[in-house]
Simulated assay, not measured.
Amino acid sequence: MPRHFLRKLELYTHLSAADREALESAVGEKRRRVGPREDIVREGDHTGHVNLVLEGWACRYKQLEDGRRQIVALFVPGDLCDTHIDVLREMDHAIGTLTPATYAEVSRDTLGAIAARHPRIMQALWWDTLVSASIQREWTVNLGQRSASERLGHLLCELFLRLRGVGLTEGNHCVLPTTQADLADAMGLSTVHINRTLQDLRRAGLIVLKGRNLTIPDLAALQAASLFTPNYLHFDHIGRHLDAVEPVAV
């Protein structure tokens, strides 16, 4: 059952039993299990389906000819990768796993048919697309304006809230399976700089990081230190305010 995906969509709107059943059926069509550091989709590929992360972590990335990599998005369970990629002739980036992962391949035709029959699903999918664009804008601000400490703290706040939104936190704890190299590639910093910045956050008492386990003792304090405002995640159930309004097809 794609429980994380359903829980994420319900951050934006209420889904009926019929909505949930339709999504569960679509996600059950084709599932794949892959290991860590494997490409799900390569740049230049032509794809007829949308990938939904069910378990594990993945990323969207661009790689330069000399091997340098920039991670431009992180995917956690419940995330759709490129919902509307069908408007492009080919992939202009790659999607790869960071950990062992299970994902579902949902055909664009299937997803389109479900959205046409279920207006709330269409509404939720558009909200999800808009939030993804909002996150991308915030990452641009991160890279361009925030200091290394603010940048990394901001990312940790974001990931914690995204995981909490789909039920993958326990109190102030969550699993953080990324390596320091992954964080460096996402934050535009060297691995050495990431290591030093993590130590600074630890010494300030803002995080406790033991292996793959992250604890944020005081989320408000980390948010303040990182200049983090969660409004761009739109996790205030704003989509639910539109439940009484018939969604408009775009």
Rank of each mutant, 00 (worst) to 15 (best):
I95K: 03
T102K: 15
P100C: 06
G78W: 04
C81N: 11
L88N: 04
V76M: 02
H84F: 15
M91S: 08
I95A: 08
T102I: 14
L88W: 14
A73W: 10
V87R: 03
T97I: 10
V76H: 04
T83L: 15
P77G: 07
A73G: 08
E90P: 00
H84M: 14
M91G: 03
V87Y: 07
T102S: 13
I85C: 08
L74M: 09
D92I: 13
L80I: 06
G96S: 15
R89W: 04
I95L: 11
R89C: 00
I85E: 05
F75R: 05
I85W: 13
A101M: 12
Y103G: 05
I95D: 01
C81A: 14
D79N: 05
G96A: 15
A101C: 09
L74D: 03
G96N: 03
T83Q: 06
P100N: 08
D92M: 05
L74C: 05
L98N: 05
M91I: 07
T97S: 15
T99F: 01
V87I: 09
T83P: 01
D92R: 11
L80C: 07
P77I: 07
L98G: 04
P100A: 08
L80Y: 06
A73E: 11
V76E: 04
T99Q: 08
V76R: 07
T83D: 05
L80F: 14
D82R: 04
V76I: 14
A94P: 02
I95F: 15
T102W: 08
T97R: 14
G78R: 01
A94H: 13
P77M: 11
A104W: 02
H84L: 15
A101T: 09
I95R: 01
D79R: 02
R89N: 04
H84V: 14
I85A: 11
H93V: 12
H84E: 11
H84C: 06
C81M: 10
T97W: 11
T99N: 06
T83G: 05
A104E: 04
A73I: 01
L88G: 02
P100E: 14
L80M: 13
H84D: 12
A104D: 06
D92C: 12
L98P: 00
I85T: 04
A101L: 13
D86A: 12
H84W: 06
A94M: 03
D82S: 15
A101H: 04
P77E: 06
Y103H: 01
L74R: 00
G78K: 02
I95Y: 14
V87G: 02
G96H: 07
A101D: 10
D92W: 09
H93Q: 13
G78N: 00
